[in-house]
Design a protein around this nucleic acid. Structure first.
Length: 298
DNA sequence: CGCCAGGTGCTGA
DNA sequence: TCAGCACATGGC
C-alpha cells in the first residue's frame, strides 16, 4: 500500500466516464481494476490516491503515469474552456483525466464497443478475459488479465461469438491476427502525428473513424483525437442548431474550436451529456435541461 | 417487451 | 462523397 499526490483529480469521473471498461466500484468507495497488467485497488482521499497491490512492480510512477497525473490539467482545461457548454461540463466533472491505457486492450475493447452499450461491452470484455486471460488473485479480489493479441488470434470466430461478441467476433480476430503476425504495430503510433496514427489504425478491420479516434486518444496519447459517437453528435447540436453536419465537418470544427486537446473536450462533453438524465430529481426540469443542451428547443 | 447502444463495411447512386 | 442497409445481443 502506498499513496501518491493527485492534485486536480477526480477518480470517480475518470473511471466512470466510459473511457475504460475493466474497473469496478467497491462497496468501500474505491475501485478495483488493472494498471499495466497488474490487478490493483485504488481509493481517493482528497488530493491523495491510495493504491493497494501485492505486485511490487506496480510503482507509484506507473500509477501516476496511468492516471496522467503528470499533465497540467488546469492548463489543458483552460485551453478547451471556450464556450458555455464546455464550461459547464468542466465545472461539473473537473478532475476527469484521459487515462494512458494499453493500446491493444483499448483497440480490442473499442472494436467490441461498436453499435453496443457500455454495460454489455463490459460483460463481453469480462468474458473475453475469463476465457483467454490469466487468472490472478489478490486480497479477496480475483480476476483475469486481458488476453494478448497472440492468444486472441488463435481463437476461432465461432469461439469468440460464443462469448457474445456477435458480428464483432470476426473483426476482433482479424485485427488480433494483424498484430500477432507482426503486420501491424501499435506502440510506434504513440510518437507520430495524429493524422498518421489514425490512418494506420483504420487499416484494422472493425476500426472506423470513431474507434480509431478512441484508440488514438485513450491508448496513444493523441490528444487531438475527437471520437464522434451518438452522444457527442447530440452534444454538437449545441453549436449547430439546425444545420446538417457530417462527421467530417464536425471533426474540422472540433479541431479548430478546441485545439490541441480536443480529445479532453470530447471526453468532458461525452460524460456531461450522458449524465444530464440522472443529474436532477425533477424529471420535468431534467427534460428541459437535456433538450436545451441538445438543441432541441427552439 | 420493444427500444437502444461510445459503428463499421458494403453497395449503389 | 454520401445515403441506405445489414449486422447480433442483452440491459433497461
Amino acid at each position: 500500500m502506498f499513496q501518491i499526490p493527485c492534485p486536480d483529480f477526480s477518480l470517480a469521473d475518470t473511471l466512470e466516464c466510459g473511457q475504460t471498461f475493466r474497473w469496478r466500484r467497491l462497496p468501500t468507495g474505491g475501485y478495483a481494476g488493472w494498471i499495466e497488467g497488474r490487478t490493483v485497488k485504488v481509493r481517493q482521499e482528497g488530493s491523495a490516491l491510495l493504491v493497494e497491490s501485492l505486485d511490487s512492480s506496480l510503482t507509484p510512477g506507473r500509477v501516476a503515469r496511468y492516471f496522467a497525473l503528470d499533465l497540467n490539467l488546469a492548463a489543458i482545461l483552460a485551453s478547451i474552456d471556450v464556450d458555455a457548454q464546455a464550461h459547464d461540463a468542466i465545472a461539473r466533472h473537473r478532475g476527469l483525466r484521459v487515462l494512458r491505457q494499453d493500446p491493444w486492450e483499448c483497440l480490442a475493447s473499442f472494436i467490441c464497443s461498436s453499435y453496443n452499450n457500455i454495460a454489455r461491452i463490459q460483460g463481453m470484455i469480462e468474458r473475453l478475459c475469463r476465457a483467454y486471460g490469466v487468472s490472478v488473485g489478490f486480497n479477496g479480489y480475483q480476476g483475469y488479465t486481458f488476453p494478448t493479441a497472440e492468444v486472441v488470434a488463435v481463437a476461432s470466430e465461432r469461439e469468440l461469438r460464443a462469448l457474445g461478441l456477435g458480428f464483432r467476433a470476426g473483426y476482433l480476430r482479424s485485427t488480433a491476427r494483424l498484430i500477432a503476425e507482426g503486420r501491424f504495430a501499435l506502440e510506434p503510433l504513440r510518437g507520430v502525428r495524429y493524422a498518421e496514427a489514425k490512418a494506420a489504425l483504420l487499416h484494422c478491420e472493425g476500426v472506423g473513424d470513431k474507434v480509431a479516434d478512441c484508440v488514438a486518444l485513450f491508448g496513444l496519447e493523441q490528444y487531438e483525437a475527437f471520437p464522434i459517437d451518438l452522444w457527442i453528435a447530440r452534444a454538437m447540436r449545441y453549436y449547430f442548431r439546425r444545420q446538417k453536419m457530417t462527421p467530417k465537418r464536425l471533426h474540422d470544427f472540433a479541431a479548430k474550436h478546441f485545439g490541441a486537446y480536443a480529445g479532453y473536450a470530447q471526453q468532458y462533453l461525452y460524460h456531461y451529456v450522458r449524465n444530464l438524465r440522472r443529474g436532477t430529481q425533477d424529471s420535468r426540469l431534467k427534460t428541459q435541461v437535456k433538450s436545451s443542451v441538445l438543441g432541441l428547443v427552439s
